[in-house]
């Protein structure tokens, strides 16, 4: 008797996540795997000189010269309240582009290491988790991808980088 019910709830979950299925750029922060929708990723560049911008949030590493265009670079580890990124030869900047109400934003995201481009099917994507009532808002997580026993947090980069959500997140984690 229980079987049809489970099947139904599963299928609706799959339907809800159908739009999430696609290719993701997988990267690492510390020991965790994350993914960014490939359509938001413009390019990956090696670490270059970052000019510190004073009087900005700590997670903003500064600005770089991307072929004549000045773009900000953020340290995703610091944004998530982790230890600042220690640069190694694996450290790269993922250049993302997303649109907001204020227009297109191009931004560099400093990550420990990029891994590969993964194709994730809807049935391998779980809805975002809840971190409990009074802890952080998980709005910026689109879902959780399961690939080869790995768990990949699929990020909505626009949400991560803009708005109060992210602000509150930092406060919640550091508090």
């Amino acid at each position: 008797m229980n079987t049809p019910v489970t099947a139904k709830s599963n299928s609706s979950g799959v339907e809800a996540n159908a739009h999430l299925a696609g290719k993701y750029m997988a990267f690492r922060l510390a020991n965790e795997d994350y993914g960014l929708a490939i359509l938001k990723v413009r390019e990956i560049i090696g670490l270059m000189d970052i000019t510190r911008v004073p009087c900005t949030d700590a997670f903003i590493r500064g600005v770089i010269n991307l072929r004549g265009k000045v773009i900000p670079v953020i340290d995703l580890r610091m944004k998530f309240g982790m230890e600042p990124c220690q640069t190694t030869d694996q450290t790269v900047i993922i250049v993302v582009q997303y649109s907001t109400t204020r227009g297109e934003i191009t931004m560099g995201v400093l990550v420990d290491q990029v891994e590969e481009v993964l194709s994730i099917n809807a049935d391998k994507i779980e809805p975002p988790p809840s971190f409990g009532a009074n802890s952080m808002n998980a709005d910026f997580i689109l879902g959780i991808g399961k690939v080869d026993k790995r768990v990949i947090f699929l990020l909505d980069i626009g949400r991560v980088l803009s708005g109060d959500e992210a602000e509150r997140l930092v406060q919640a984690v550091t508090a």
Partner: peptide, 8 residues
Amino acid sequence: LGQGLGAT
């Protein structure tokens, strides 16, 4: 300076 830096 590009968007996304907040107030500079």
